[in-house]
Design a protein around this nucleic acid. Structure first.
Ligand SMILES: [Mn+2]
Ligand SMILES: [Mn+2]
Ligand SMILES: [Zn+2]
Ligand SMILES: [Zn+2]
Lengths: 140, 140
DNA sequence: TCAATATTGATAATAAATCCCAAGTATTTT
DNA sequence: AAAATACTTGGGATTTATTATCAATATTGA
């Protein structure tokens, strides 16, 4: 039961919130858009309004249950926050997303920010390319 | 005259293109949204349709005369391409944008991509924070 | 249980960007 | 230089992702 997670986040345990958090906890590796969350709930026979999906995802983000990304500049995707920060490589051809964390890059960022008189709140690093995965629909 | 730059980019020298490229060349340090470009042209007494501003900025981006960024996830901003790649630190309070380039970060990215079986097309690194600039409207 | 409070979801509204196409401009040909 | 051709413009309509509104419904603490 994820009612506890909701409580801890200061959110009452409503059906839509349960369903959406469940979906994301069941797919901890996924990066899903609001529409995708909506579709999957429909597929499992649950009816939640699309407005509610957007609203709840926003609440989850604010309370740090999930993280939001914008790989393509038009649509946000959300992933379960598993505690450890990471950055992303995205294949422009097949859409595959690979996660990585590089302590050297993290450290350089801190140095640069300090040098420039900034205190870092967050950062965002996306590497875009094409992958050599056999499943990739890219044809050279 | 920047007609030559337009020619080199394979674009005919029309009045809107001249005006927009001029504006960006006159402000090589600026990161302007389409609406801001539009407003500034109006301010200088020039009338260019907003649809044209968007269209021309798109053409300029495609032909590499300018670069596009999305610091805030909702609105694109454009800057003159001065040949040298750089990344950005953005102040969440005052909006100040500082540019930097760190060869060590660039190199790490190449290593990571290779390790993961990717060929890099581009990347995007924004550091968000708050600055200690006296002009910053942030109050601790 | 029940009243007080919070949440939902259908629909309307918004904002950035793109599409459409008739009228206008630039370029090429004669 | 004029005519012919090809490309471009700009006003308005359209799209797309997301947010706002608000009456109906669900949750919760007493
Ligand atoms: Mn991720
Ligand atoms: Mn810049
Ligand atoms: Zn791929
Ligand atoms: Zn600042």
């Amino acid at each position: 039961m994820n009612d506890n997670d909701l409580k801890r986040a200061g959110l009452s345990a409503t059906q839509p919130r349960r369903l959406i958090l469940d979906l994301l906890q069941q797919n901890p590796e996924a990066h899903l858009s609001a529409e995708e969350v909506y579709r999957r709930l429909l597929e499992q026979g649950e009816t939640v309004g699309i407005a509610t999906v957007y609203r709840v995802l926003g609440q989850f983000e604010k309370s740090n249950l999930i993280n939001r990304h914008q790989f393509d500049g038009t649509t946000s995707v959300y992933e379960l926050n598993q505690g450890k920060h990471h950055d992303h490589i995205i294949c422009n051809e097949c859409g595959r997303v690979v996660e990585f964390i590089d302590e050297e890059i993290e450290q350089r960022q801190r140095n640069i920010a300090e040098q420039q008189g900034f205190h870092i709140d967050s950062h965002l690093l996306y590497i875009f390319g094409h992958c050599t995965n056999p499943n990739c629909r890219y044809k050279p």
